[in-house]
Write a protein that binds this DNA or RNA. Structure first.
Lengths: 343, 343
DNA sequence: CCTTAATGTTTGCGCGCGTAAAAAATTATT
DNA sequence: AATAATTTTTTACGCGCGCAAACATTAAGG
């Protein structure tokens, strides 16, 4: 705040009476200096508001405090929430998260990974596209810098994976739907842009068999990320044509379900579990909007916070120990059934 | 791709047969070197995939190619979309956008601005909170680095402002509502977290007076960013109690409207402009979900793309010319009426 | 008070690149 | 072909800080 601005650490050392190497230590880790000197530094800091040059800091350091966070699509509320949660976890651990979105384009994912490399991140937290991801690039990066995958798994890739146990979660909602009414059909994308969709399909099939019901899968032809649009148009057409063998539809994710709810409303079909209702619709993910759909959407809530926190701490452990665990860890959290009005 | 990895520009100069200063020029602006040398460099680049060290590059440069983009809340689809649009505009102009969200907290906005400063950005594109923003910090930053505001205006602050003409847009929808049914009441937050809300209120009042109808404003008490929740609980209570003097409700933004639609559905009120409908609800902003609400939401679409593009080019002009225009420019784009089923 | 260990200071090198100035080489112009 | 204009090369310095080694100081423990 003083007129004579401090231009570099040298000057700040002179004015604060602390040697430059000690200041350097302090800025890289305030806890690495004695309490009394820390207080002296912070006192001086308040008077002169000096901040070290980020670029000069990172230039000579083998590893920075940056952590790259890459999600497939920040416009999707699910990734928005989980991305934010990861961001917070990094900040709390003293790292500088760099949140990047691939905007739904797998080629951008690879580009993001490459451009991250030039920022010398201490680690990378990646929610990959999955099948559409450029596996080679991911493996290349994960060899250079500790990489933890979350949400979508790619086998043998990255030092660890954290996600939701789709078998458990789908099993949960299938069980509920079977118990409370007609057994569910599954509505999903023909070409899913996410490996979780494939797992959920298998989980659905297994679960239906377990309950002794015939499984029915109906697929939407569209591609891309306009799930609501696809759910509305394709799902709506299926409803209109009476293509669903039972009156209960389990959507592979909430966004598809939101589209279907919209279509059902337009068609005048009453959705819900009441006696006067025509069909039941359920989703998966507990999208932030699912509480406000008409009717509100019965779904599975993923434990965003736990996934984010675990992925982050897994990464930090690898960073701190300097080596990845001998065995690639896969951590799966359970989903919770959220009962609302739609099923 | 060759085994002997290039460690720095020196080595790349040796292996490519181009002098280091020329390479330096190339990396800072490929067009600044002759076409033939550019081709030689790019040919060598393909064989050895060298990338200059970002930190060393920026250390000695007075100004980088970074552009800070700060929005109040990336979790809000509106800011998500406009933030993304701004990001793209920066990339296309050869800048490196750094997208930061203040997560709904004004104090984080100031923090983001300060931490941006240490990245020596060439410019800042800021969608401020408005009244809740730390004006002093914004002004301090905008004195050091070219700053363009968008979405929400703060008078006399920043080199320019780009947003939507709320008087035009609200006038448009009020006119439509008056013409097609009962004149609208306005439903808004008592303590709006955005200056646009205040402008829209004035625009509503003015427009209602112009059409010769009595204005009615109903306010929700809540604070914060959970607009849907507030719209549902408070707006729902107002509907239930018959607190709206007319059957037409204009919400200050789509998220409030989405909450109200949900509440109306729960109450069994039929929303829409049909003869059998009880109430009409309209919004403002054309939220990505407004097409999928039940019924789909009549609203005003802001021209995201135009606002983002104009804000970015305004900034780049200031950066390139090295000085801000003598007069602070304020550019307002018109909103478009989007007619759907809810009103 | 002395010994140890922990912490700070001095000194000094180097990182990878920006950038400036002068010399050399290449193109464009007449 | 000669001259001028443009571009590239050579040379050299400095940015702000990380980091290491040797030395000086402080805190802790008996």
């Amino acid at each position: 705040m003083n007129p004579p601005k401090i231009r570099n650490m040298e000057e700040f050392a002179a004015i604060s009476g602390i040697s430059r190497p000690t200041l350097s230590k302090y800025f890289n880790n305030p806890d690495s200096v004695r309490k009394t000197t820390r207080q002296r530094i912070e006192a001086a800091l308040e008077q002169h508001d000096y901040r070290p040059n980020v670029y000069a800091m990172n230039q000579n350091r083998q590893t920075t405090r940056n952590v790259g966070v890459i999600v497939p699509n920040l416009a999707d509320p699910f990734f928005n929430e989980i991305g934010r949660a990861v961001e917070v976890a990094c900040l709390e651990a003293g790292y500088s998260p760099i949140l990047l979105s691939s905007h739904g384009k797998p080629e951008l994912e690879a580009e993001n990974l490459v451009s991250l490399r030039s920022l010398k991140p201490a680690g990378v937290l990646l929610a990959p596209f999955g099948r559409a991801s450029d596996r080679k690039t991911i493996e290349k990066v994960s060899k250079e810098v500790p990489t933890v995958l979350f949400d979508a798994n790619i086998s043998e890739t990255g030092a660890a994976f954290v996600g939701t146990d789709n078998f458990q979660s789908v099993g949960l909602i299938v069980e509920y739907l079977c118990r409370s009414g007609e057994p569910p059909c599954l509505f999903e994308m023909e070409i899913p842009s996410n490996p979780n969709a494939l797992t959920r399909r298998q989980a659905y099939l297994q679960s239906m068999e377990h309950h002794g019901f015939a499984a029915h899968i109906l697929q939407a032809k569209g591609m891309g990320w306009d799930f609501e649009e696809i759910g509305q148009s394709e799902g709506g057409a299926l409803i209109r044509d009476g293509a669903f063998p039972t009156n209960t539809i389990l959507c592979s994710n909430d966004r598809l379900a939101i589209g279907m709810l919209s279509a059902a409303y337009k068609l005048g079909r009453k959705v819900g579990h009441g006696a006067t209702c025509d069909i039941r619709i359920a989703g998966h993910d507990d999208h932030p909007f699912s509480r406000f759909t008409c009717p509100s959407l019965t779904t599975i809530a993923q434990d965003y916070a736990a996934i984010a926190e675990r992925a982050a701490t897994a990464l930090f452990r690898i960073i701190d120990t300097g080596k990845s665990p001998s065995e690639r860890e896969e951590t799966l959290f359970e989903g919770k059934l959220v009962l609302r009005d739609s099923a």
